[in-house]
Design a protein around this nucleic acid. Structure first.
Lengths: 107, 107
DNA sequence: CAAATGTATGAATAAAATTTCATATGAACA
DNA sequence: TGTTCATATGAAATTTTATTCATACATTTG
């Protein structure tokens, strides 16, 4: 599932499996557009693709790819409403993660 | 410095600049080996490259590349002590970021 | 049903990130 | 000084991620 050294990382409280999962989530979030998506959905609770596309000024297809990835990895959920598909933040913990870093004075 | 959409992301409390910085830090952390490094240095306050290499069972050169990247991005600091070079956690906030996610029940 | 709208998908490409390997550098020590 | 130990560095090879583009799919509406 992820890059793992030949004979791995057995140490400290966090198991290697958990470290991989954490890395997986971090990687899924580590992109300006995706951070913006999280921010948006942190404040809105559910938005359609076109809503997000307009607000972030990101092209439909590209956005769709980002959203699909984030949903696949469990960060977002989606439901259809007529022609639209609404996305919502499922793993709300990522808000804290972002805010934690965003709060750093030196950034 | 980072992938940014044509005409970007003007929205919410977090400025696009800050989102890019946050993404930058997240990306720098989003790797099992690097998470392990943070964990180790969260508990040890300073370790040499060979210390880390042995504990994590990661090959010298590869580790050096990871460490250099993390230092460059301000997450670690390093000081020489004779033949050794000791690395320490500079941006301690990343501990919280990792612990936040690590605390997720579903991981 | 045909056209329009909103979204997804897949293939091709482009750009980054990771890993490996060979070699360089710098400090210590015989 | 020459050798050894600890670490860094750089170039290639590989793998992963991001972007674009064309097109497909589903739902609504005329």
């Amino acid at each position: 599932m992820s890059t793992s050294p030949a004979a791995p990382l057995v140490d400290m409280g966090l198991s290697i499996e958990k470290m991989e999962k954490v890395a997986f989530i971090l990687k899924t979030t580590a992109h300006p557009t995706r951070i913006a998506i999280v921010q948006l959905l942190a404040a809105h609770d559910s938005l359609s693709v076109s809503d997000i596309s307009e607000r972030l000024n990101v092209e439909q297809s590209l956005l769709s790819h980002h959203l699909a990835g984030m949903r696949l990895k469990g960060i977002l959920s989606s439901t259809r409403d007529g022609k639209n598909i609404n996305y919502a933040l499922k793993m709300r913990e990522v808000i804290d993660v972002i805010q934690c870093l965003a709060g750093c004075t030196f950034l």
